[in-house]
Design a protein around this nucleic acid. Structure first.
Lengths: 417, 417
DNA sequence: GAAGCTTTGTTTTTAGTTCAAACAAAGCTT
DNA sequence: AAGCTTTGTTTGAACTAAAAACAAAGCTTC
């Protein structure tokens, strides 16, 4: 039950009807491939004749293809259909504090080409490197099929204007990466915050997609824990962006006071100040009190390159996985506060699940029980408790997220009406 | 850009097209009344002929009527259309801790009939009283036009089964008010949490509706502050309910420790424990230290009738409005913590605005600046700050909410596709 | 005040899409 | 081999909105 937005609502005409049904059929092919026309007709309650004409269109557009016939169930054998994955290439650009990864993938999210280089703290240099890499991939690949470039950034992004408003890690402001990339390549460019992008990837390529039996998750929150803490909210199968695209900054919610580190916004009582990689580093340092081999700058100036801080979270996780007690303690204490924030989200949203991504997930085995326990204790009794899980997208959910910014467009319905 | 829910998606047929366009036209009539067919055609880009046939249907259904002709702009005079408000009657039941209000209204939300009685702490007695009142209203009114009964409750509600899972104020559990009301009246019954209901009212009958120029708010959060703290989330013109309808319990998010009162869930670090009417009462008591005329039970047992606690918030507000300093201080201190929670919501959602409702709003003039200031200080610099406003629905937003549960259905699009 | 222009609303025809039913193709069962 | 089942296509009907023509009613201007 939703209120119509009269400013944006589009009236239905014959083409609307067609577009809706084509999208539905395309999604059935994607989700249940291989599948026959008759199966689609049964599942959608469309007539077989209608499905046939729709499939004909989809084949003509190069999105669907026949792959021979299946087993007979007592009559004519069905003709099986699947996505024509090679029909579309997407480019994904994942800018993380230390490493920038650029890949191309097909419609199924299968990666075709991959490049990596260290992220520079100089925004102009980054713009150049990204453009160069994409151009090179284009030369070597099939440029005609490139549908667009998705860019995932660790900061505040205005998705509408494809502009990075503020990247705290490097202190970049108003980085117009979207415009630059578009001018250089003439491709569609979509830019978003890393947590939003990862949430989108989880929605379209995550757990639910893998386990065909389970329903697709449509309400969940993605929490990216690395240098900072970012959140991406998925509501009713859709990313929630809020005014000026600034939603999903739950990392800055107040959960107490006297945090071990400062937040990227300067406060000391944000969730991020308690539960980020930076917080873990601060705890580890305090535990080792001067004994630590590697000195770590407390980042309070913008524009510090900060590689050491990021390295340190990686380092702590390494030590913890090696069994070093103070590293384990630092991580578990961080996980406890992570749990408090997650409890807040669960209590407020009652989502189907909370998905954790980012550098911290490498220590998942060490922190999972602490996390579960904290949430268990904090969530109000009687309320349904949501599942908490590490991202199913491997170690780079944000990279998959960058691709999803382009790929999801091919299957999603428009926002109108 | 949303992912299609294949389990629920309905394919488009001719009737889908018709239904969409009828809803759009109906909403134009509602929002811009009086309006002519030609104006609707211009605004929607539908052909005048199409608008004519749609309006014919809407008139036949008794939802729209002609009210004479308007001014000519150089040609034939337009025939003006408006909602036929008497076509539909809705019943709204607002169960608040002290008072239960039952009203009927027309399609425009104009109240026609009104009854009130003190809320009893006995659930069965309440069921009876409500049924009796509705039946009586039905006898005296035009029963044929009654479209349904909306019920707003201060607690955890499963909207799908129309059952109150838990009403902390009275300790009621699994109160099947929906089923009982439906069995007794054979009308459609919709039950929801008070904050959700009030949010729905704000969406359909709130500020934006009154000021025709401004865009309709489609992303905001309703915060109801009375005995406890409840939140209703509106996202993309739609109430967000979450798993098992348990969303919107941000009152139980952790924002610190050592609150002046306990939360209805028993914890002492929930937002509600810092910012509810109960918290204000505790602060006031402490400030007056035994001097207060009226002793107030600290409610920690369920099933305490608790009228006195609710009376006390009213009482404190009265005193504060009379200029009593300790009452003012207690309220402002409460407002400060209210502000912290609101900051969290703003930072996380970046909604267009936060709307405050409930008993506390009577003290709006005393707390507004404190609230604004706290939020100003807490919200991260650079992020857009949302507007904070008292509900525009008078002193009973939840009553309007109860009506909206039925009325909104007449104009809203279905969730499908 | 009459002719011509403008605006509104209706009527008629056309086009696009799905539905429904019949048909053709291909395989299983007995 | 006959009959049944299943799949996919063909053909015509039904529904809806678009487009164009028309009718009604008012304004403007000479």
């Amino acid at each position: 039950m939703r209120r119509i937005d009269l400013e944006k609502a589009e009236t239905a005409r014959a083409s609307t009807m067609r577009d809706i049904n084509r999208k539905i059929v395309l999604n059935y092919v994607r989700d249940r491939q291989p599948i026959s026309r008759a199966d689609i007709a049964r599942a959608t309650a469309l007539q077989r004749s209608t499905v046939s004409t729709i499939v004909e269109h989809l084949r003509h557009d190069g999105l669907v293809e026949e792959i021979g016939s299946g087993e007979s169930s007592g009559g004519r054998r069905p003709t099986l259909l699947q996505l024509r994955a090679e029909g579309v290439l997407a480019v994904g650009v994942d800018v993380a504090p230390t490493l920038t990864t650029i890949v191309t993938s097909d419609l199924n999210g299968q990666i075709r080409d991959r490049r990596e280089f260290p992220t520079s703290s100089n925004a102009e240099k980054m713009t150049e490197s990204i453009i160069e890499t994409v151009k090179d991939m284009r030369r070597r690949g099939d440029a005609r099929r490139m549908a667009g470039i998705g860019v995932s950034l660790p900061g505040l992004v205005d998705a509408a204007s494809s502009e990075a408003l503020y990247i705290p890690y490097f202190g970049w402001r108003n980085w117009k990466i979207g415009k630059h990339l578009h001018d250089a390549t003439n491709l569609r460019v979509v830019v978003d915050n890393d947590a939003n992008a990862a949430a989108l990837a989880e929605l379209w390529f995550g757990i639910a997609h893998a386990e065909a039996e389970r329903d697709v998750m449509r309400d969940f929150i993605m929490v990216i824990v690395a240098e900072g803490v970012g959140t991406g909210i998925v509501f009713d199968g859709q990313i929630y962006r809020g005014e000026r695209g600034a939603a999903g900054e739950f990392g800055h919610m107040v959960i107490g006071s006297g945090a071990p580190s400062t937040c990227s916004c300067g406060n000391r009582d944000c969730w991020e100040a308690f539960a980020s990689g930076r917080a873990a580093v601060a705890r580890y340092e305090k535990l080792r009190e001067g004994k630590q081999r590697r000195s770590v700058k407390q980042s309070d100036n913008k524009n510090n390159n900060g590689d050491e801080v990021e390295m340190s979270l990686t380092h702590i996780i390494d030590c913890a996985l090696d069994g070093e007690q103070s590293a384990i303690t630092a991580l578990q204490e961080t996980a406890r506060y992570l749990g408090i924030g997650i409890s807040n989200l669960i209590v407020g949203f009652s989502p189907e699940s909370i998905i954790i991504g980012g550098a911290l997930t490498r220590a998942w085995s060490l922190i999972e029980s602490q996390l579960q326990e904290t949430v268990e204790r904090s969530v109000r009794r009687g309320l349904p408790s949501s599942r908490i899980a590490a991202s199913s997208l491997g170690d780079q959910p944000t990279l998959m997220g960058a691709l999803s910014l382009i790929l999801a467009r091919k299957f999603a319905t428009s926002t109108a009406a």
